[in-house]
Amino acid sequence: MDIQLPDPKGRLTAYTLVGKPIETASFSRDFNRTVFSAAHVVADPFTARDPSGPASIDWDATMAFRRHLADLGLGIAEAMDTAQRGMGLDWGGALELIQRTKREIPDALVFNGAGTDHLDPKDARTLDDVRRAYAEQIEAIQKVDGRIILMASRALARVAASPQDYVDVYRDVLALCDEPVILHWLGDMFDPALAGYWGTDSFDGAMETALAVIAESQAKVDGIKISLLDKQKEIDMRRRLPAGVKMYTGDDFNYPELIEGDAQGFSHALLGIFDPLGPAAAFAMSQLSAGDTAGFREVLDPTVPLARLIFRAPTQYYKTGVVFLAWLNGFQKHFIMLNGAQAMRPLPYFTEIFRLADQCGLLRDPNLAVARMRSLLTVYGV
C-alpha cells in the first residue's frame, strides 16, 4: 500500500507501508511490575464553545478508550497531563473524568491526579493556600474511593521559599490520604511553570528533598514517578528508595531498559507514551512476565524513535502526537483537541509519526490510517 507524503520542503514522495499490526495480549496484574498508561481525552467537535473555554468532552469515545486500555491489562493514570490537565482540562472537568471512570470501569486499576490546578498560581500567597487546594482535590477523589497520584503543584513552585517548605507541605498533604499515593515529579520540559521544583534547580538537591518527603511519610507513599527524560537520574534515585517504595518511570525516551531493569532493580511504569503504544506495551509486558526478556525488548525497542519524536521539544505538546495516533487508529472520529491543541505541531511531525508508527506495527488498520492521513494532507493543501 502506497501513499504520497511530503518531505520537509513539501516535495511529494511515495511511501510504501511495511508494518504488520502488532500482536495484542494482555498481562496479569499479579506480575511484579505495575504499568499505567496516562490516558488522553477525546474532545467533542460539535461544541459551540470556543477552544479556549471550558473543556467539551466526547464521553462515549473517552470511556471507550479507557476500556481498551483496561482490556489490555494496563492500569489507567487518570486526569493527568496526557489528558491535557492544565492545558485545556480544568479541575471541574478532571473530577468528572475521574468520577466517570470509577463508575463505568469499576474493576480497572486506576490512580487519579490530585493537584492544585483550581488555584491560580498568581492567587497563591501562602503555603496554607496550597495545602487547602490539595485538600479539596484529595477529598473529592477519596469521596468516590479513588486512589491518588499527588501531582506537582504550580502554586507550590511559586510560593515555596525553600526545600523545607516542600517537606512541610507534602507531610501535611500526605497525612490526608487514606491510602498510599504515587508522588509525581514532573520536569520543567513538560511544564515550564515547575522549574526549580523541590526548591532547587539542582537534581541532586531536589532528589534529597523528595527522598526526605518519602522518608517522613513512607507509609503513605506507594511510589514516585519521575519524568525528567534522563535515565541515569531515575536509576540513581531508584537505588535510594526505601524498600517497598516503587519507582515509576515517566521517561518516555528510555522506558524499555528502565522497565527491564538491572541487577539492582527495575522501574514500574506510568507513561504517557503507553497511551498510543498500548497494544505494544501490553504485548511486551506479556513477554516479560513469561520470562522472555529478549522478546520484551524486541517489541518495545523499535517504538523508541516514535516516542522520542512524539515527545520532542517543546515536550509539553506531546499530547498532539498522542491524539493524532488515536485518530489514525480509529479510536476517535476526528482530530480535534481541547484548547485547539491539534494545531501545536507542524505537518512534518505528523508525516514522520505516520511513517514510524507503520514501521513498528502500530497502525492497527493500515487502510483506515492511510485514508485519514490523506484527509489531513488535504487540509494542509497537499
Rank of each mutant, 00 (worst) to 15 (best):
E104F: 00
P106M: 09
A39H: 10
V18M: 09
E96L: 02
R372H: 08
R11Y: 10
R297I: 01
L288K: 05
A313F: 02
Q359E: 15
R125L: 09
L186D: 06
E208Q: 15
A195T: 14
Q137T: 11
I76M: 08
R171V: 05
L176R: 05
A290G: 13
L109V: 11
T13F: 11
A280C: 03
A281Q: 05
G265Y: 01
Y248V: 11
P346I: 00
S162R: 09
L69P: 01
L109D: 10
L186C: 04
L211T: 03
M151N: 06
T378K: 14
A219Q: 15
T320L: 01
A206M: 07
Q99D: 15
A83D: 08
R85H: 05
Q316A: 12
G93C: 05
R240I: 00
P8H: 06
H68D: 15
D44K: 04
K333Y: 03
S56F: 01
V221C: 06
L328Q: 12
V35Q: 14
Y197M: 14
A94K: 13
G244P: 13
W91T: 15
F331R: 12
M1V: 04
G88A: 11
T351K: 07
I214H: 08
G115M: 07
G75L: 01
A371H: 10
I273G: 12
T116C: 13
D107R: 12
D44I: 07
E78P: 04
F46M: 13
V323D: 13
A157V: 14
F31G: 15
G19P: 04
S267G: 10
A307G: 11
D236Y: 00
A108N: 13
L356F: 02
V213H: 10
A282V: 08
Q232I: 01
R345P: 13
Q264M: 12
G10A: 08
W327Q: 05
E208T: 11
G278H: 09
R33Y: 01
R11E: 14
A281V: 02
I57H: 06
Q218G: 11
A175P: 03
L89W: 00
E78S: 10
L270I: 00
A219L: 09
R372M: 07
L69D: 04
D275F: 04
G291C: 03
R85D: 01
I310R: 05
A124D: 14
D128L: 09
V130Y: 02
R67Y: 06
E257L: 11
G244N: 08
A160G: 07
F65W: 12
G19A: 05
V18F: 05
M237T: 04
V181S: 07
F111R: 15
Q316F: 09
E139D: 14
S28T: 14
P314A: 02
D81Y: 01
G381Q: 04
R131K: 09
G244S: 05
A79P: 10
L186W: 01
G92D: 12
L288T: 09
E78V: 04
T16L: 04
F46G: 15
L288S: 10
I310A: 02
L306G: 03
L89Q: 04
M337E: 15
T116M: 11
M207L: 02
M247S: 06
V159C: 05
A281S: 12
K225I: 03
P6V: 01
V181F: 02
A263D: 15
L347K: 11
